[in-house]
Design a protein around this nucleic acid. Structure first.
Lengths: 126, 126
DNA sequence: GCCATTACTTACATGAATGTGTGTAACGAA
DNA sequence: TTCGTTACACACATTCATGTAAGTAATGGC
């Protein structure tokens, strides 16, 4: 969030940050965040469970996305000490509120898809 | 859209394209697209008008975003031959449908903003 | 012929997001 | 003592998005 303040790229953020919509989209903007959100709608999960379910996401990216979502208030992270450690992730109220809105966006996308021949997900909520 | 198909980055798209929500977010994902969408809600505009209103957006980026939005069906682009040329951009029906949904997302963002001290826009629809 | 205007286009440079591979702490089990 | 498990952290490489600066076609006005 707090960047170097030198480059044009960074200073252009002044035109973006006042917008609540840009802010909202920023929170879900990572490449794997929607999949994580979707999976966690089924309930609390351990880090290792997420890893298993998302074999295509590298550990680094999974951790980065989870931590960003935690910082942004989308996830709650609980650490249970012991060996080995147990870490659980679950959706916050804020993230749960987001569900229905994203569902609408998803339907808009489905209605207006022009790239035919792509098999869209039936088993995914959004 | 059609990328090299070689790198992991590219081949990972197979896990993203089936999702209608990812597809929808992709259409509005460019850095300046929301501002353009917002501006064009007031009606049809010439390229030069957009340029004047968005002095912080370079011509290259403005053109790129406009063309991408046209390809994605969000904008209609009309060329009126003559010298100098006149080019007008306006929202498509699909883009107009999007308005209320984005408005909801924007409100969600406003409700849940944690970065206090940032003056949010009052004069912007979303 | 020369300049001005509109709506771009192109080559190049920079920055951010994502991916690769290896390393680590904490301990209990063998 | 070495091994295994969990949940990461770190240094480095690649790919994509964005920004910079200059050039262009068409044509009317001077």
């Amino acid at each position: 969030m707090a960047r170097k303040q030198t480059s044009t790229y960074s200073s252009n953020e002044q035109y973006l940050t006042p917008c609540d919509l840009t802010y909202a989209l920023g929170k879900i903007g990572g490449r794997w965040k929607l999949q994580i959100l979707d999976k966690l709608e089924q309930g609390k999960m351990r880090y290792s469970d997420l890893r298993r379910d998302f074999m295509h996401i590298t550990e680094r990216m999974l951790t980065l996305q989870l931590r960003a979502m935690e910082r942004d208030g989308l996830l709650r992270r609980s650490v249970y000490a012991g060996v080995p450690v147990r870490v659980e992730y679950e959706l916050s109220d804020m993230a749960i509120e987001l569900g229905p809105i994203l569902k609408q966006l998803s339907l808009w996308g489905k209605r207006n898809r022009t790239d035919t021949g792509i098999e869209t997900n039936k088993d995914r909520n959004f």
